[in-house]
Design a protein around this nucleic acid. Sequence first.
DNA 1: TAGATTGTTAATCGATTAACAATC
DNA 2: TAGATTGTTAATCGATTAACAATC
Lengths: 219, 219
Amino acid sequence: MANTKNEPHISQAALARIPRYLLYLHKKRDQGERYVSSTEISQDLNRNPVQVRKDLALISKVSGKPKLGFDVGELIDAIEGFLGYRRQSEAVIAGVGQLGKTLLSYPGFSDYGLKITAGFDLNPKLAGTTHNGKPIYDIADLSDYVKQHKTVFGVITVPAAAAQTVADLMTGAGIRAIWNFAPVHLSLPDGVALKNENMAASLAMLSLRLRALEGDDPQ
Amino acid sequence: MANTKNEPHISQAALARIPRYLLYLHKKRDQGERYVSSTEISQDLNRNPVQVRKDLALISKVSGKPKLGFDVGELIDAIEGFLGYRRQSEAVIAGVGQLGKTLLSYPGFSDYGLKITAGFDLNPKLAGTTHNGKPIYDIADLSDYVKQHKTVFGVITVPAAAAQTVADLMTGAGIRAIWNFAPVHLSLPDGVALKNENMAASLAMLSLRLRALEGDDPQ
DNA sequence: TAGATTGTTAATCGATTAACAATC
DNA sequence: TAGATTGTTAATCGATTAACAATC
């Protein structure tokens, strides 16, 4: 019985802005700022001040003080709580290539509530080894492992051609959320959360933004 | 004199959908499909068919054929052209750690119009070496290199604490677009394009989506 | 106190969706 | 031809912004 309907709806667009606030607030805190106003945030982030206040109200109970602004520390706590950086979830990763190894050994994830517990690969030479202290198994053992550990998150860093097969394997074993780094469109059953990480798309957005900037006449 | 005002405005939201279409179309082509209808696309991507048609019209001149749908190959060509996968731009990368190396050796970028030509690092042991055939220099040489090669793109994969310094170095040398992987808020001069790659944010969005799915009652 | 800032209500703006004639 | 599908115009919906009273 989760609190479904009583928390106000938050749009994807608003959701995407939240982590930006967090990074900004960290910067402010590092600079020794105790309070920050929505006006200041909005200027530095090129946004509308009302939007900032609405966003902050949407995800936290922290209220600002007239004349002062918001308590930086309180906001950071509230946002980190909202984004789930406190809860710890376990994940497995399929595909222990260059990118898979990078993610396996990235220390930062634990700060963000994710613990990658094991890697899986098709390459028999990798099975039985470890990377950064994390065990690597044969991909054939993924299903058993996931069922046994009741793992909820799956990360896909296999080549594009293998991604759908791996996704099927994961969802079949009970994985409920997939973080996909392979540049393919995955078909998943309803009820499984999916987040695609598409480097090409990011890159394209960056160069389109650049084009827009350069296309814009000064006037 | 770029075609500024005559191309219709495309929103960020729409822009973010385009690469999804591309991946989907690649899948269709691989399956041997010659035509695909907006209805079919919309169903598989959980979107509105009118939105699909509008998006496609926004970025291409390809028109669909009543009863048949759109020519898959034509659409792929048009989208790849729009996203800039044809043009080739040169980039430098600052921070040759685990992630930096992964990006340096990722073969896929050339398909997407990006060519990383050199890496830069603070570590003097790395200077003078190569990775995947790409030269690595001391970070102190970045400015000269960028000026000499007129490099437009900069990729930041340094630790958070060093990211702003590196960004300043890049923009000072003439870099016009920054792809930032460090989890910090960067302050950049106007006219410089920025795309933040925030793993923590992606992760948070995934777990929030999962929470939403699990929170939703079946009815 | 005077004034900056918050938080909310109302107005605007833009994006999404519905309706439908045109087309192959 | 009949019918599926496109492309466009109009209606709806939601998000952003403007206005302003409340507050410290």
